[in-house]
Simulated assay, not measured.
Amino acid sequence: MPLLMLTCFAPDLHPDQPTYTLSEEESKHAVRVLRLAPGAPVLLVDGHGTLASTTVQDANPKRCTLAITSHEFIVPRATYTHVAVAPTKNLDRMEWLVEKAVEVGLERLSFLRCARSERRDLKLERLEKIAVSALKQSGQAYLPQLDELIDFDKFIAEIDPSTTFIAHLEAGERTALAQVIGAAPRCCVLIGPEGDFSPSEIALALGRGVRPVTLGSSRLRTETAALAAVFTAQVVREL
């Protein structure tokens, strides 16, 4: 299916339905902003792998109805990238991370409350909207899972240490993420706050069997490090 036409988010799309009515927000954008008329092509994506080619049937700015002409299911990738990051005080930087990580192809993003975290609470509503917008813009078929903020020690207790890596800045032996990620079809990379993980948090992770990694010689901002982890995982696996 072509991905250059207008793409709209349809979270409740079903393969057997002949028509689909866009939400009021999507309808307003399609009809009032883009001025789509009956017969105009629209691509629907549900964020779970289903795409549908449609044409505008009723260009109502509040309830735009589309006639579905065909469906396609995109098989999920065999790899799965999960990044857990301590959100920055400036929420704009987390919004940037969500947008870019969705474009690159992240499967899951968790938010950690660490000892040195500047942000102690986080509301996902705005980030979820940004994720949907990035999904539509980039032509991705799957919407990443965004998790509520969770305490670091609780998160560590729940993960699979055999597929988890911690990118910390403390002295000690660390392996480049690119060298170990290719052998791990599923991976979770932990990214700390601006002041890094605390020594006790690093010790807790290592004690659970989480492996220490480095993202390079540069000292990266939190959101840059998180995106670098996503990009590294995608590029290494594609090569």
Rank of each mutant, 00 (worst) to 15 (best):
K28N: 14
R126A: 11
E118N: 04
L143T: 04
A141L: 02
S162D: 15
H48N: 14
R108C: 02
T50F: 13
E238N: 11
T232N: 03
T175W: 01
T50N: 14
V31C: 15
I166P: 01
Q234N: 11
F165E: 04
R174L: 06
T214G: 05
E72H: 14
E148R: 13
V236G: 02
E238S: 08
G47Y: 03
D153S: 15
T164Y: 01
L127E: 04
A78V: 09
G172Q: 02
L215K: 11
S162V: 13
L190R: 06
L127C: 02
D16C: 10
I68C: 02
H48I: 00
D16T: 08
F197M: 05
T164I: 06
K62G: 02
T79M: 07
E173R: 11
F155Y: 15
D92H: 10
R119I: 06
T222M: 00
V132T: 05
L44M: 03
L124Y: 01
D16S: 13
G39S: 07
E201R: 01
S162E: 14
Y20D: 01
V236R: 02
L122P: 10
T21L: 01
T81K: 05
C114L: 05
R174D: 07
T232W: 03
A184G: 06
A131P: 01
S70H: 11
I159H: 09
A67Y: 04
C188E: 13
K100V: 10
E95V: 01
P199Q: 03
Q57C: 12
L169E: 13
T79I: 10
L204K: 08
T81N: 09
L220V: 00
K89Q: 06
E26R: 06
I68T: 08
A10Q: 03
A30M: 05
A10T: 07
R32W: 06
T7A: 09
T164L: 01
A171F: 07
S162I: 08
R113P: 00
S23F: 02
I202F: 08
A183C: 14
E25D: 13
L6N: 01
E158I: 08
E173I: 09
L34W: 07
K100C: 08
L34D: 08
T79F: 13
C188L: 12
L106E: 01
L206I: 09
K129G: 03
D16W: 01
F152Y: 15
L36F: 05
A84C: 09
F197E: 11
H168K: 05
K62A: 13
E128F: 02
A225P: 14
S27A: 06
V85Q: 07
L149G: 07
L227F: 02
K89I: 00
T232G: 08
E118A: 15
A205V: 02
G39M: 09
E194H: 05
A10S: 04
S53W: 13
V230S: 09
K129R: 14
P161L: 11
P87C: 09
C187N: 15
A183G: 15
E125G: 04
E158L: 15
R174G: 09
T224C: 10
E148W: 09
A115W: 02
D58M: 10
L122D: 10
S217T: 14
V75N: 13
L44V: 10
